[in-house]
Computed example of a mutant assay.
Amino acid sequence: MASLIDQAADHIEILVYAGLFLFDNHPDLPDQLVDKAKAGAQIRVLLGDPDSEMVRQRGEEEGIGGDLAARARITRRYLEPVTKTPGAEVRLHGTILDNSIYRFDDDILVNPHVLGAPAGQNPVLHFRYIPGARTFRHYMKSFDYAWELGTPS
């Protein structure tokens, strides 16, 4: 994922409940997002609202209870510099999240959520935008739908 982050110039869009692994594995990610937004990239991040019923339910399903909400709060804290940057926006959502979505320009990673298993134990599917193909657009419509339901962080 590091190379996708590094190469993205126009769009970085992330839809997760917590996505804390991103910051554990890429501690400079908030600075990268700020720099990319300042260079003109559109940055949109959707985090699970730690106070929402869906985050509570998903935490129970994964067997970690309130720890998922705590992980979402930590991620939100890491993203504070991003929320203050023009061209970057962080929103909270309380949707039923069937897939985590990570877009980097014309690449999209989709992490299907298997009931009862943490996201990290599930596969990641990699799709590229191809004119006329529907898969990339299909997942981005899902992202956009959640984005419209989200509230500013």
Rank of each mutant, 00 (worst) to 15 (best):
37 A>I: 04
38 K>Y: 05
38 K>M: 03
39 A>R: 07
40 G>H: 09
40 G>K: 11
40 G>R: 03
40 G>L: 08
41 A>I: 05
41 A>F: 08
41 A>S: 07
41 A>W: 04
42 Q>G: 00
42 Q>C: 02
42 Q>H: 10
43 I>V: 09
43 I>Q: 03
43 I>S: 03
45 V>L: 06
46 L>I: 15
46 L>W: 08
47 L>G: 06
47 L>S: 03
47 L>V: 12
49 D>H: 04
49 D>F: 09
50 P>I: 07
51 D>W: 04
52 S>D: 03
54 M>D: 01
55 V>D: 03
55 V>A: 00
56 R>F: 05
57 Q>C: 00
58 R>F: 00
58 R>M: 04
58 R>S: 00
61 E>M: 01
61 E>K: 01
62 E>R: 00
63 G>C: 02
65 G>V: 09
67 D>Q: 11
67 D>Y: 13
68 L>I: 08
68 L>K: 07
68 L>M: 11
68 L>P: 08
68 L>R: 06
70 A>W: 12
70 A>M: 13
71 R>M: 08
71 R>Y: 13
72 A>P: 09
72 A>V: 12
72 A>G: 07
73 R>I: 02
73 R>N: 10
73 R>S: 13
74 I>F: 04
74 I>R: 07
74 I>M: 04
77 R>H: 14
77 R>F: 15
79 L>R: 11
80 E>R: 11
83 T>P: 14
83 T>F: 13
84 K>Q: 15
86 P>G: 09
87 G>A: 06
87 G>Y: 10
88 A>N: 10
88 A>Q: 12
89 E>G: 10
89 E>I: 15
89 E>L: 14
91 R>M: 05
91 R>F: 04
92 L>E: 02
93 H>S: 09
93 H>Q: 14
94 G>M: 15
96 I>Y: 15
97 L>Y: 14
97 L>Q: 15
99 N>P: 13
99 N>V: 11
100 S>Y: 13
101 I>E: 08
101 I>R: 01
105 D>T: 04
105 D>S: 00
105 D>I: 06
107 D>I: 10
107 D>G: 00
108 I>D: 09
109 L>D: 02
110 V>P: 07
111 N>A: 12
111 N>T: 12
111 N>F: 07
111 N>P: 11
113 H>G: 02
114 V>K: 02
115 L>N: 08
117 A>K: 12
117 A>H: 14
120 G>L: 10
121 Q>Y: 14
124 V>W: 10
127 F>T: 09
127 F>N: 02
129 Y>R: 13
129 Y>S: 12
130 I>Y: 05
131 P>R: 02
